[in-house]
Amino acid sequence: MIKFKHYRINHIRPLRLFYKVNIFIAFLFFNLFIVNARELFPSEKPHFEANFEHHYNQILTNFRSLRFLAKDHQLLHQNINQSIKEKNPHYINTFNQLLAEYYNHQENYKLLIELYDETINNPVYEHSISYVLLLNRFYHFFYLHNINNECDRILEKIRSIIPHLDDKEAIYAESIADYLVGLRVKGNTIDVKQKNITRSIENIENVQRFFSEIDFSLMLAHRYNHLAISYVNIDNNHAITMFKKALRYTGNDDLRLRIAILSNINYLHNLTDQADKGLIYGLEGEKLCLNHNFKTNTYNKIICNLSDSYRLMGNEEKMLEYKKNCDNEILVFQSKGEQLTENIKKYLNSNERKVNKTFFGRNMYYIIGGALGIIFILVIIPLLRTRKTKITSG
């Protein structure tokens, strides 16, 4: 006779299993959040607001992916106004970074210069990383237009702020300063100082926990892109390696940067008699530009590099097709570029006059007050003393 064991149905065990599964899922989500979260810098902590941070990341993501729309512009201004209303200096600076980028993209240089003037002359939350990052945006604008006197002014300002920052913020600010020192435009070429860029990379790696994974990768991408430029015509194969490293760090998180790096790789492969390889990168860059209606100087360079690739590969038909577009784009851009630089310098000069006028106006009361004080000391007081003496002696 076979005996069967009797099993009691346990209604508690399925519930325990349910709770364990949910706890495990919650644990996974928690770890996922921690991986993608970042530690806040000391100057950020007192002013952090989740809603502001969410909107900032939303606008920044759309800008990087070339999907910046009218609604993003509206949301940006709403957050600037709200941060001013709430007197939140960190987010005033943070959203102004995006506003500066937006004005630059729209080529509205008059408003950009006005924002720069307000930033440099009337700083908000000066001893903070958010202010340094705002100055950093303006530096890149002036550096690309070869306006070195303003670059020097910004760099000097950043250097003066660093001693007032927390240790970790100071390391990050030093990284920014080194990166900026390492970049200068000389004529039609970019002068890159390898030592400064390398030190900048080392410094941001020391404060990696303060950045999201995407932001950290993009900072490295920018730096490796410029480090690669420093090897062009010195060690082109190493330059290609650096450009491809920058491309891996970029991914698809910043299409502007990706397009620029693709153009650089195309150009370098052409120089090293690997036009067939360069063509792949150039065509990807062209596709991204056309898909996102991104007709900039970078697009012009891609068209010209592709023309050169086809020439080196012996495809005359394609070479002539791209060369025609290349010649047209270059003529348009050179004329436009010269006019833009001239306009920027004009805005700067008129802005300086405005600043001097404003400075004089603001200090007029002090000047008049000082003059009256001197008159009082030199004229009125001696008269009173003389009068007092006459009365006493009588």
Rank of each mutant, 00 (worst) to 15 (best):
V332D: 05
D235L: 07
S217D: 14
T341M: 03
L155V: 04
I80A: 03
F243Q: 07
K85L: 08
Y366S: 10
N81D: 10
L40F: 11
Y347M: 06
I162K: 00
C151R: 00
R64N: 12
A260D: 03
N237W: 04
Y179D: 04
L17K: 09
G370N: 06
L183W: 08
V379D: 10
V379F: 13
I303C: 09
I25D: 00
Q58L: 15
A371K: 02
K245C: 01
I23G: 00
E284K: 06
Q106W: 01
E284P: 03
A100S: 15
H127D: 13
K3F: 08
N297V: 10
L155A: 02
L288H: 07
P46W: 09
S83M: 01
F48R: 15
N305Q: 07
L17P: 01
Q82I: 02
H6I: 08
K85S: 11
Y224A: 06
Y365R: 13
V124C: 06
I368L: 15
F63K: 10
K336M: 11
L60Y: 05
Q106F: 02
I201G: 12
M242E: 10
N121T: 15
K287R: 10
I59A: 07
K323Q: 08
H77V: 15
R256N: 14
E39Y: 06
L348P: 01
Q274F: 03
N121M: 05
K390M: 14
L383K: 14
Q334M: 08
L255F: 06
F333D: 07
F4D: 05
L320D: 14
L40I: 04
F30R: 04
V132I: 14
D254R: 03
H47D: 09
Y139R: 04
Y103T: 09
E156I: 03
D308G: 03
Y109E: 02
S217W: 00
N300S: 13
A246R: 03
L255Y: 04
A70M: 14
K388E: 12
R199N: 15
P163M: 11
P382K: 14
T250I: 09
K388G: 03
T296M: 04
I34K: 09
L28S: 02
V21D: 00
F333N: 09
K324R: 04
M313N: 08
L66N: 13
I9D: 01
N146A: 05
L99I: 07
G187I: 00
Y91K: 10
E352V: 05
L183A: 07
K354I: 10
V192T: 06
P14I: 11
Y299S: 07
I234T: 09
T198G: 06
S230H: 09
T189V: 04
L227H: 11
K244A: 01
